[in-house]
Nucleic acid binder design. Structure first.
Length: 540
RNA sequence: GCCCUCGUAGCUCAGUCGGAUAGAGCGACCGCCUCCUAAGCGGUAGGCCACAGGUUCGAUUCCUGUCGAGGGCACCA
């Protein structure tokens, strides 16, 4: 890559004038402003203190040395601002990018090895199996799955996992609520009042209800899980592993975890309960593992669960949690440290809440669920692609308001259609070319040097940024940076489409080169949209 | 009271591992279809990057505090 070429040239030049490039941290980056060239290096400023010289003075020597070196694609090197060394390149470097994109294709282009084979377990959604998924789960599902896709592409060995809290008080209340509804009675206090409970109770066979609360719970569990699986499938999210809390209890894994904690001296008995000494690991207070009635709290099975994940050989555990659970992070991390693991091996991205609005007012999409907005209804209304891209439009750190009027509108202010339309135009061009009997010659025969139009250059420049974007998206677990890139690619493509006709009154060699450029854009959209879990239509 | 996330253009949001004149889309206003879909393209206007200190050659970015929004604070998950 060009960046490496330039960095190597800088290192060599720096060494040549008596600096030690390895001793300072410096960067080779794309300047924010185009006037500052194509690539910019801050090594002169970074070395100033150690060298005891003025940054611009060092930069001057560097530029002189770099001008002597014959570096591929470099048009000029100059000093700018406080001491930046800026490189201006000839368009040829972007023609090389085009070849790289087309030859690499969807599978081969932009595969930076960030993970180096790290085994990572990404646990997300993990909704309780006692009701349908809601819009908040949708954001977590879109995020978790997209992070998984990005990490897979960047050299991580990824497992997608769903944890089932199929044990405990919540499940008991759910079963009681189902049974009460089945019998036409009001749901008990602290029960589940959503209309889906009544609907599902109506579906429940009489013999299940007659068989008692355990049978009802079991039936209700299956019913809820089937519902969630169905919606996730419609959302194009799949899981490799479904783990059960109850199974951890039944297998003795939970007891083993507690014994482990005791052995390590991080668990103790007091006030009739058993406690985790989480304060030892930075938590505010110690947390109960076993309640005073002897039943486990949710924390102990969770610790056992994470212990199990590590036992399965994962180097890194990522739990995607909703904002309402963030206070739980310190004790979970404490539990992991208590088991002897490095806290850096456990990460918890927090997904902030989602609000759905119509005409500026909060809406409740579901008539059935009462107080929840079902993911199913959202998908039914806008489609899985639109829902996913919309969720991934912004960072999960900030709260999100989804305007349903906007999202369903077929207008300029809808970013989903903007991107999809750009993609559709690619196929429109290819279709026109085929209809006109134009055959795309082999890439090796195309003269890419004719691609010099500002729009063509900008389009290629955006394509060239994808490896860096993916590196960052993977490190920061930030799918929205990919969304931003895809939007920019769409922006560049629309501009190109508008000003640069591929077919029509253009020379044959330009048509050929542009057809390859269009194909490169297609590869870019295919990679980007796939990472977001969004398919793109070939026509609209 | 303590902890977490957020506060950037009228609106919705990027950017922030410290860098050169802070970006996009929408909305507003002005333009562009004899030619691959105008679901598009171009232009103009619009900012004390919540506020106050600190660190630094340099802070929207890092640290501290204040204010505001949201969320969480053992035996619900």
């Amino acid at each position: 890559m060009i960046r490496d070429t330039l960095a190597a040239a800088v290192e060599s030049a720096a060494a040549g004038i008596g600096l030690d490039p390895a001793a300072v941290t410096w960067t080779m980056e794309r300047p924010a402003r185009r006037e500052h060239g194509d690539w910019s290096c801050n090594i002169a400023m970074a070395s100033a203190k150690a060298a005891g010289r003025a940054p611009r003075d060092i930069a001057g020597d560097l530029v002189a040395a770099l001008e002597q070196a014959d570096i591929a694609h470099v048009d000029s090197v100059e000093i700018a601002g406080p001491g930046f060394v800026n490189f201006r390149l000839t368009p040829s470097w972007l023609h090389d990018v085009l070849v790289e994109v087309v030859e690499g294709g969807t599978d081969g282009y932009a595969r930076p090895d960030v993970g180096a084979g790290t085994k990572v377990n990404i646990e997300f959604v993990s909704a309780n199996p006692n009701g349908p998924l809601h819009a908040g789960h949708g954001r977590g599902a879109a995020y978790g799955d997209s992070v998984a896709r990005i990490m897979e592409r960047t050299g991580f060995d990824v497992t997608r996992e769903f944890y089932l809290n199929d044990r405990g008080v919540q499940m008991a209340r759910y079963a009681e609520s189902l049974l009460a509804r089945k019998r036409g009675e009001p749901v008990p206090k602290d029960g589940y009042g959503g209309e889906y409970v009544a609907d599902w109770a109506a579906e429940m066979p009489d013999d299940v209800a007659d068989a008692g609360i355990d049978a009802v719970r079991s039936w209700g569990y299956d019913r809820a899980l089937a519902d969630q699986r169905e919606v996730l499938a419609a959302f194009h999210v799949h899981f490799d592993v479904w783990s059960s809390e109850q199974a951890l209890v039944d297998s003795g894994a939970m007891d083993a975890a507690l014994a482990d904690l005791r052995e390590r001296g991080h668990a103790y008995d007091a006030d009739g309960a058993t406690w985790l000494r989480s304060t030892e690991f930075g938590d505010d207070k110690d947390r109960p593992l076993l309640k005073s009635d002897g039943d486990p709290t949710y924390l102990l099975p969770d610790i056992a669960y994470h212990r199990d994940k590590f036992a399965r050989g994962f180097d890194l555990l990522i739990d995607v949690w909703g904002a309402d659970h963030h206070g739980y992070v310190p004790r979970m991390r404490a539990g992991i440290e208590a088991l002897g693991h490095d806290p850096d091996e456990f990460e918890v991205p927090i997904v902030q809440i989602v609000r759905l609005e119509r005409e500026g007012k909060e809406v409740r999409l579901s008539k059935r669920a009462g107080d929840i907005i079902e993911l199913r209804d959202l998908i039914d209304e806008v489609g899985a692609d639109v829902a996913r891209l919309t969720y991934l439009l912004q960072s999960v750190d900030s709260q999100q308001a989804i305007d349903l009027d906007l999202v369903t509108s077929r207008s300029n202010d809808n970013p989903v259609f903007y991107v999809q339309y750009a993609h559709a135009r690619i196929h429109s061009i290819m279709g026109k070319a085929a209809a006109a009997g134009i055959v795309r010659a082999p890439l090796a025969d195309a003269d890419l040097s004719v691609l010099t139009h500002e729009r063509e250059i900008e389009l290629l420049r955006t394509l060239s940024e994808l490896p860096e974007v993916l590196t960052r998206a993977a490190r920061e677990r930030a799918p929205h940076t990919v969304t931003n890139w895809v939007r920019e690619l769409a922006d560049r493509f629309h501009g190109f489409y508008h000003d640069c006709y591929v077919i029509g009154d253009v020379p044959a060699d330009l048509t050929q080169a542009r057809l390859w450029l269009v194909d490169a854009a297609r590869v870019g959209f295919a990679i980007g949209l796939d990472l977001l879990g969004v398919s793109a239509p070939e026509s609209m």
